[in-house]
Amino acid sequence: MEKIIKAEKIKKAFRTEELETWALNGVDFEVSKGEFVAIMGPSGCGKSTLLNILGLLDNPSEGCYWLNGTDVASFTEEHRTDLRKGVIGFVFQSFNLIDDLNVYENIELPLLYMGIPKKERKERVEAAMQRMDITHRSKHFPQQLSGGQQQRVAIARAVVASPEIILADEPTGNLDSKNGIEVMELLRRLNSEGTTIVMVTHSQRDASYADRIVNLFDGEVTVETKNI
């Protein structure tokens, strides 16, 4: 199967004046197109760091990273931004919606930066809201929504540009079980429609939605399990 993500010997160090911490220590990681992969591990094992590197938010200190066959490890920030647009969508545990923008405006944001015309933006935002069942909340601001609703807005924002990959960092971490299940169902539905999903989670239940589980410990991949 075609590899959409391929990372080899990825290392990431965080340096302060006194200390050098290796968050990732030679991670090899691959994801096939249309796959749903869950990354698990204890706190501080490097899950989020790996996800940030996969999402082109950060550069690895060492190692190679191919996204859709392009080596992106040494790309500049501007280059990474361009590559990320419309290819990768993000969903975070703390939703990361902009407080000053309403639901519609939050979802519209990636399309704005992609330079999509207004009419098309409107169609795509409305479609995304409908898909996430939040159309009735379009004029509301994030702080007026429940956690589940906020996460649905975040997912709508992640999918509105029809990205090939969605990177989700503990998407249910701040939600109750009912809302958590709803979010996971949404992600599974997106995956079944062809979107590749890489999800960081602590939850076995959430991980059970994935095709494959990768376990990280102290910055290294320890076990890989396939869900049947």
Binding site: T81, R84, N96
Partner: peptide, 16 residues
Amino acid sequence: QKEIAIRKINGARKGD
């Protein structure tokens, strides 16, 4: 900073 970070994650370039 957080707002700028979110915007950058969603595709905002330096010019934006």
